[in-house]
Design a protein around this nucleic acid. Structure first.
Lengths: 131, 131
DNA sequence: TAATTACCTATTGACATAGTAGGCAAAAGG
DNA sequence: CCTTTTGCCTACTATGTCAATAGGTAATTA
């Protein structure tokens, strides 16, 4: 399941994409438009900044801004960043230790196929496809 | 993410599908073959029985057995049962209260599309496709 | 009646989720 | 310089889920 962090992050990115001409957008405004607690959004934008998807500027006239053009973002990279990978099963997670049953496992190919399907779906969707 | 419950359940079903001529299969044997704690499997098979996917028989010579022919099971119904729906986001869960932002939400159509993709993928896969 | 099996309830530790609280740091406007 | 506005940082917490474990009762057969 995709958590609120992933979903909210996507909404923040969409909000910023729509305000793209206005320079830095204060988080307060985003929080009000999106009806999400500003405090909680702080956590989310922090991750987005750390992941180089957006940049922030302090002080009066500050706020957040996209780093690239909206059409250059895929939904996949946003979700991936927030969820720490959107892998379907623990066996396929980046940090997973190799399963001794992998060779004989009847279900592993299914998870692989599923993983690829999901990955392709989200990475082929651009931010601008949602506006 | 699909939990161990869902993954183990699928492996139990596959195990039963392969032993289909042997009548009732004791959980002890499944646990040994699959290298999963029998105690934990008890929880899983209980759900499978309750969901009418398998049936159990007590006493000597007892165990578990599929209710239908292996080719008549979709992977989707197994996962769905164990995960209490494999919905992508809370907004689309069966028990979710209606979101006041649904009409204007830019992301909802994406989740719908994703949900359908996943649903179709798992429901089109039959148990026998994995053997 | 003994062995074998399923079936039932309760408990646990670890971790993740979804936030909240309070303050410090930076930048701009007057 | 000082105040306001903003981002940024650390810490805390309540709730819930996951992945099991433990210990027993009930049913069935040889």
């Amino acid at each position: 399941m995709i958590s609120t962090k992933g979903r909210y992050a996507l909404r923040v990115m969409l909000d910023l994409a729509e305000q793209t001409k206005k320079g830095y957008v204060p988080l307060k405004d985003i929080a009000e438009r999106q009806e999400i607690s500003k405090k909680y959004l702080e956590i989310i934008v922090k991750d987005l900044v750390k992941g180089n998807l957006i940049k922030g500027s302090s002080g009066k006239g500050g706020g957040y801004m996209l780093c690239r053009k909206p059409e250059e973002y895929s939904v996949g990279e946003i979700i991936d960043l927030m969820e720490n990978s959107l892998t379907a099963v623990a066996c396929l997670a980046p940090d997973a230790k190799e399963c001794p049953r992998a060779k004989e496992c009847r279900t592993l190919p299914l998870w692989h196929e599923y993983d690829e399907l999901v990955h392709n779906f989200f990475y082929s969707k651009k931010l601008t496809d949602l506006i």
